[in-house]
Design a protein around this nucleic acid. Structure first.
Lengths: 143, 143
DNA sequence: CTCATTGCAAATCCTTTGCATAACC
DNA sequence: GGTTATGCAAAGGATTTGCAATGAG
């Protein structure tokens, strides 16, 4: 998916922390990860990185277009691989569970609602907040 | 709109800070206010309140259903009067400008997207992030 | 008078920054 | 070797909390 030196093509030196973070996103089962989660996962794999570096790398990746940042409700940013296909998010307010969806009708009306009012819509721009009602859910977000 | 002792009807003692905050929302031209903004506006009107109290009062009002809290992107919560009518929000990422809208088609498909996936949708649940393109805009959010 | 509420300061949480050291090319 | 990136610790902004003093009913 990403060549080993994909980082260079976006103008970033290919350093160990950056490679680690990128492959984590490519390998992780969980698509949306917070800085804290990335940090803990890397520590758990025996990699010695600083949390500040994670934040810096995530921001650089976002600016380079490799990742997308979402804020969601709850105060912390989460990141996901930017694989080009547009989709929106339903976020569970209870446990932080995220599901992605795409609805062409919503896309069209959303765009119209925005442009009618003079807004320029962003790519990943639409969020629905809800309760996921999963059996394991009513707990706190597992960070 | 709110009787002077409306607070009692929601189980809150009618104290000075609470009355001040409530009437600020009822009087303010700007519908969406952050805790900091409420604080500064009250100080400016010569009222002596603590910022911590503002945060407490806002949270109590939210729980009492008088206000709705939104997080939006950018790290700070904003509140608006809960006047019962459902609407969604378009938020400018450049200046924080918020416009409300309602689109029945989006409502329906949004609800379907959520329930199809087992989610229970929230009342004020949908956010669109965009750029407002207003002449005064490209600045920072005026807090 | 009694308990809820306030104000202040200190504490938290997430994120950013300064700076000396270490890693890239 | 000259930069750029890292790690640590300290700083930052938003929000919460502990606690003694104040206020409402």
């Amino acid at each position: 998916m990403h060549q080993p030196d994909h980082l260079k093509t976006v103008g970033l030196k290919s350093t160990l922390p950056r490679l680690k973070v990128l492959s984590l996103f490519e390998a992780s089962k969980q698509r949306h990860l917070s800085a804290e989660e990335v940090y803990k996962l890397l520590l758990a794999s025996g990699d010695d990185v600083g949390l500040a570096t994670i934040y810096r790398v995530l921001t650089q990746f976002e600016q380079a277009g490799l990742l997308m940042r979402h804020h969601f409700e709850g105060g912390k940013s989460v990141f996901e691989l930017n694989q080009g296909e547009h989709h929106d998010h339903i976020v569970c307010m209870q446990c932080g569970h995220v599901e992605e969806f795409y609805d062409a009708t919503i896309e069209a009306r959303q765009k119209k609602a925005a442009t009618d009012r003079g807004f320029t819509i962003h790519d990943h721009s639409l969020y629905i907040y809800a309760d996921c009602n999963k059996p394991k859910c009513p707990n706190k977000i597992q960070s």
